[in-house]
Amino acid sequence: MSHSQLWSNDRLAGQISFLVEIDKLKGVLRKTFLMDKSRLENTAEHSWHVSLMAIVLQEHANNPAVDLNRVIRMLLLHDLVEIDAGDTFAYDTQGYLDKEEREQAAANRLFGLLPEDQRGEWMKLWREFEDGETYEAQYAAALDRLQPVIHNYYTGGVSWKNNGIVRSQVLKRLAPIRQVSDTLWEFTLEIVQRSIEQGILGEDPIMKER
Rank of each mutant, 00 (worst) to 15 (best):
M1A: 07
L6M: 07
W7L: 15
W7M: 15
D10M: 07
D10C: 09
G14R: 14
Q15S: 12
I16W: 09
F18Q: 01
F18T: 03
L19W: 07
V20C: 06
I22R: 07
I22A: 05
K26I: 05
K26V: 06
V28T: 09
V28H: 08
V28C: 11
L29H: 13
T32P: 04
F33L: 13
L34A: 13
D36C: 02
S38Q: 06
T43V: 05
T43L: 01
S47A: 10
H49K: 04
V50A: 00
S51W: 02
S51G: 01
L52N: 05
M53C: 03
A54F: 00
A54P: 05
I55C: 01
V56G: 00
V56Q: 06
V56D: 02
Q58P: 02
E59K: 05
N63R: 11
V66W: 00
V66N: 01
V66A: 00
N69K: 10
V71S: 00
R73S: 04
L75M: 12
L75S: 07
L76T: 14
H78D: 07
H78T: 03
D79H: 12
L80D: 07
V81C: 08
E82G: 08
E82A: 14
D84G: 13
A85G: 08
A90W: 13
D92P: 11
D92K: 13
T93E: 08
Q94S: 14
L97C: 15
K99W: 07
E100M: 15
R102Y: 14
R102V: 12
E103Y: 09
A106I: 14
A106M: 15
A107S: 12
G112P: 03
P115G: 05
E116T: 05
D117Y: 04
Q118I: 14
Q118M: 13
W122H: 12
W122L: 14
W122D: 09
M123I: 06
K124R: 05
K124I: 02
L125T: 05
W126I: 03
R127N: 08
E130W: 01
D131N: 15
E136T: 01
Q138C: 07
A141I: 04
A142D: 04
A142T: 05
A142M: 05
A142W: 04
L143Q: 09
D144E: 09
R145S: 11
Q147P: 00
Q147K: 02
Q147W: 05
P148K: 10
V149G: 00
I150D: 00
I150M: 01
Y154F: 12
Y154R: 09
Y154D: 04
T155I: 01
G156V: 02
S159Y: 03
W160R: 04
G164Y: 00
I165W: 00
R167E: 02
Q169F: 00
L171H: 02
L174Q: 12
A175W: 05
A175G: 06
P176I: 06
R178I: 13
E186W: 06
T188Q: 12
T188M: 10
E190G: 09
Q193A: 14
R194P: 03
S195I: 08
I196H: 06
I196E: 12
Q198H: 12
G199Y: 11
G202L: 13
I206W: 08
I206K: 04
I206G: 06
M207S: 15
M207F: 15
